[in-house]
């Protein structure tokens, strides 16, 4: 039986930590995204014609939201579990009568919630810059939630794997950020040369951005069904890795 009280305790603790560092947790990513709107949406976007019939400023909104979601999900979840490992307070979680399910619900649930809130705020903020049209709001919410969860799971794995602060930043900097920028956040992949279009299909972020953008403008690089399948597959792989980590005690128990 799941220890809901324990999961709730970790979740509340992590949410309170975000609230106590509100500038870093919420304000900072929102300011960064607004700057993207100003630079790409207004300054550069005003000189670009429409993309697939959508103004460039509006076209990049889903990509920008995804950019914030992915980076924030990974950062929140990785730091959330890495910090107690770093300080040694993880002993308490490991000696508590809980399984990895409660730990995931607490840490990943809180990281995903924070990212979701940031995503919604960015979406609302973008309304001040461009005219937003959300054709499929339920799909939009579905992709938003799934992305928050799947990349929070990835961040959680990074936080468990990292044994110093450099490694904690390594994957987000060298893998996540390039994947996001090359994942069609600011363009459709058919704008790329054919060879790079093929390479892009190996980038999981392409499927996320494509599916999410489809929910807004019904414009997609790949079919929405494939996008959904890829996100679910990615989530399942992350869950399997975390299950293995807790089963073996890798980096957690000696």
């Amino acid at each position: 039986m799941i220890n809901t009280q324990a999961a709730k305790t970790i979740y509340k603790y992590e949410m309170l930590r975000a609230w106590n560092t509100i500038m870093q947790s919420f304000v900072s990513p929102i300011i960064s995204t607004v700057l993207y709107f100003v630079v790409f949406g207004s300054a550069i976007g005003s000189r670009i014609e429409t993309v697939e019939g959508v103004s460039y400023g509006a076209f990049i909104v889903p990509g920008l939201v995804m950019l914030a979601l992915l980076t924030q999900s990974v950062a929140n979840a990785s730091f959330g579990i890495y910090f107690p490992r770093f300080t040694g307070t993880i002993y308490e979680v490991l000696s508590a009568p809980i399984s990895f399910v409660e730990i995931l619900l607490g840490y990943v649930g809180a990281a995903a919630t924070k990212s979701f809130i940031i995503g919604m705020i960015i979406l609302a903020t973008s309304g001040f810059f461009v005219d937003l049209n959300i054709s499929h709001p339920f799909w939009m919410l579905g992709f938003l939630v799934l992305t928050c969860i799947s990349f929070s799971l990835l961040g959680f794995i990074i936080g468990l794997w990292a044994d110093n602060f450099e490694k904690l930043q390594l994957i987000p900097m060298l893998v996540i950020t390039p994947l996001v920028f090359l994942g069609g956040s600011f363009y459709t992949i058919d704008m790329l040369p054919p060879a790079w279009q093929t390479v892009s299909l190996f980038n999981p972020v392409v499927y996320l951005v494509s599916g999410f953008r489809w929910s807004f403008y019904e414009v997609a690089d790949v079919g929405v069904g494939i996008s959904l399948l890829m996100v679910l597959l990615f989530t399942a792989i992350c869950l399997a890795i975390i299950w293995w980590i807790f089963k073996t005690g890798y980096r957690l128990k000696q």
Partner: peptide
């Protein structure tokens, strides 16, 4: 080791421990 969350208050950390054990 004195492994404690430095920025927490005493009350907050004790409540956290109790909740973590499902109480």
């Amino acid at each position: 080791e004195l492994t404690l969350p430095s920025f927490d208050t005493v009350w907050h950390t004790v409540c956290f421990s109790r909740g973590l054990f499902g109480k």
